[in-house]
């Protein structure tokens, strides 16, 4: 496996982010940098990736692990190319979130929490994404898909499968986090 290192552009971005905080407070850049790292390295944070981020911020690796494991958006294990996160909290449930999850499970042949054998889709249920007025909804990368129906899910699955891109919360053309 090649050494974990940001590309020169990403490294420059990381340096700009670190400058947002006062002298000696570079640790504040940890959450943003973990997002950047996750996008750069296949959608998840390996121990090597976290160690690398620690070295950039001049902090101990454990300080990175404890943060990465606290927040739900950081994946500590590999995930499918498209991470489908369906909201299941009250307001979404009231408008049929359960049916959406069930439909995904049927269409993809996996259970919630699993990844398809071809590694394309991981299905996850998550808590309220701040989109309750357009429920049911899901997030895939930085995109929200709202007012879902089973038909819309079918179209989405096709679209995502065809695109072949990895979903990330950061879109490369908008790297200025």
């Amino acid at each position: 496996m090649s050494k974990v290192e940001f590309s020169p552009d990403t490294l420059a971005l990381a340096q700009r982010i670190i400058k947002r905080y006062p002298e000696g407070r570079q640790k504040s850049a940890l959450l943003p940098l973990l997002h950047v790292a996750q996008a750069e390295f296949d959608g998840w944070l390996s121990p090597e990736t976290m160690d690398y981020v620690a070295s950039l911020l001049n902090i101990k690796p454990i300080e990175v692990y404890e943060v990465a494991s606290f927040y739900t958006m950081y994946n500590l294990k590999p995930v499918g190319k498209c991470l489908i996160e369906v909201c299941r909290t009250g307001p979404c449930w009231l408008r049929g979130a359960d049916d959406i999850v069930e439909h995904f499970e049927k269409k993809l042949g996996i259970k919630e929490g699993e990844t398809t054998a071809d590694g394309v889709f991981t299905l996850k249920t998550v808590e309220c994404l701040g989109s309750c007025g357009t429920a049911p909804m899901l997030q895939c990368g930085s995109d929200y898909y709202e007012n879902l129906t089973t038909e819309k899910v079918d179209t989405l699955i096709e679209k995502l499968r065809a695109s072949g891109n990895r979903s990330t919360y950061m879109k490369s053309n908008m790297q200025e986090l």
């Binding site: 947002r20 959450l31 997002h35 943060v67 606290f70 927040y71 739900t72 808590e127 986090l177």
Partner: peptide, 12 residues
């Protein structure tokens, strides 16, 4: 004044 946006990591 300098103004920055900080992303969270997913935690209510």
């Amino acid at each position: 004044l300098d103004l920055y946006v900080q992303p969270g990591g997913g935690a209510y």
